[in-house]
Simulated scan of single mutants.
Amino acid sequence: MVIDPVEVLKKTSTGIIPTSLPSVSSLPSVLPDPIDQQFVGEAGSKTLWVVFVVMVISSAVFTGLSWRVPAKRLYHVVTTLITIIAAISYFGMATGQGISVNHISVRHQHDHVPDTYTDVQRQVYWARYVDWSLTTPLLLLDLALLAGLNGAHITIAIAADLIMILTGLFAAFGSDDTPQKWGWYTIACIAFLVIIWQLAINGNVQAKAKGDNVGKFFTAISGFTLVVWTLYPIVWGIADGSRKMSVDAEIITYAVLDILAKPVFGTWLLYTHARVPETNVDLGGFWSEGLSREGGLRLGDDDGA
């Protein structure tokens, strides 16, 4: 009996010996990219320039409005300073300044192979935190003066605000493998709750005491501000916190929030202030003459000699 080797190979190929091997692409990969660079792109860069222009125009408009007011320009001065500081901050970020790179080593755990690590490099715009540390206290001052809060409540609100901004900056440069980052974030959120208490509780009580018009306006504009401010820590958690948002998307989102919190807020405040006389702030002679000098020595007084 003659055995045909071709027939043997055909039978074997359909039985014991596999005719194909799994492709390499179907095998699971356990080795992540060695470096994950999360830097600004063209969209983010253009957005920074656009917001810079918006802040400059807003500053010019608010300055023009202040020239039309013969006296009592406190709201105008404070609000204009807010957009001027923001314009300077955005100019710095748009020109590539006020930026640092946070290096993070992300650990990937595996069941049957050793753990692997990815080196993440993400840009952090620390100039943004400098901006917030100067402009948000001024925003709170506008609202506090509108409501008629006393000095103690204003001091507590501004102190809590500075704690919130600085701890947010510390969290942005925190490490993932320690509770450091989210610890700072928690402290910032607690400080924000203090601000909410001062505005929503103490502020509303004082504003309503100044009349229905002031009470309704303060409730509306402070509520708008607190809603916008609440979105900031949410964006931070998605962007700098968990890095689920690109740097470009982070810049665009913060840009929208900054425009709402500064030019839109300022326009609303100044135009309503012009129509509602009850919103005027009576500081006596403090704005032009300083605090009372009663009891102080004056040149020319008789010294009894």
Score class of each variant (00 low, 15 high):
40 V>D: 04
39 F>G: 06
67 W>A: 09
126 W>Y: 15
86 A>K: 02
227 V>I: 15
191 A>L: 10
165 I>Y: 06
25 S>Q: 10
39 F>K: 13
106 V>S: 09
110 H>I: 00
205 V>A: 09
213 N>H: 06
88 I>Q: 09
301 D>A: 07
87 A>M: 07
19 T>Y: 03
192 F>D: 11
250 E>G: 11
286 F>P: 08
119 D>S: 14
275 R>V: 07
140 L>F: 09
65 L>A: 04
207 A>L: 00
299 L>I: 12
177 D>W: 10
78 V>F: 10
154 I>K: 05
106 V>Y: 11
107 R>H: 08
56 V>E: 12
174 G>N: 07
58 S>G: 12
29 S>P: 01
285 G>V: 01
134 L>S: 02
168 G>Q: 15
282 D>W: 07
232 Y>G: 05
203 G>R: 00
47 T>S: 12
1 M>S: 13
198 Q>I: 13
212 D>K: 05
209 A>E: 13
293 R>W: 03
121 Q>D: 14
45 S>P: 02
59 S>Q: 01
135 T>H: 06
180 Q>V: 10
250 E>L: 07
107 R>M: 10
70 P>F: 10
172 A>T: 03
259 I>V: 15
76 H>E: 01
39 F>C: 05
216 K>V: 10
250 E>S: 13
182 W>K: 05
304 G>Q: 04
34 P>K: 11
195 I>S: 06
281 V>A: 09
112 H>Q: 10
18 P>H: 14
190 I>D: 03
183 G>A: 02
34 P>W: 03
83 T>H: 11
150 N>K: 04
114 P>H: 02
101 V>R: 11
51 V>Y: 12
218 F>Q: 00
290 G>M: 07
32 P>H: 05
175 S>P: 00
94 A>G: 08
65 L>G: 06
51 V>G: 03
211 G>V: 02
44 G>T: 04
304 G>K: 06
108 H>G: 01
179 P>I: 01
126 W>P: 04
180 Q>Y: 13
31 L>E: 15
165 I>Q: 10
135 T>Y: 03
195 I>Q: 12
218 F>A: 02
48 L>S: 09
31 L>H: 10
54 V>S: 08
159 A>K: 04
282 D>E: 14
150 N>M: 03
153 H>S: 08
94 A>T: 05
250 E>I: 01
94 A>W: 01
39 F>N: 12
120 V>L: 15
72 K>H: 08
288 S>Q: 14
194 V>D: 03
126 W>S: 08
202 N>P: 01
36 D>Q: 13
77 V>N: 14
79 T>S: 13
89 S>K: 03
82 I>Q: 12
239 A>F: 02
37 Q>E: 14
30 V>D: 02
199 L>E: 04
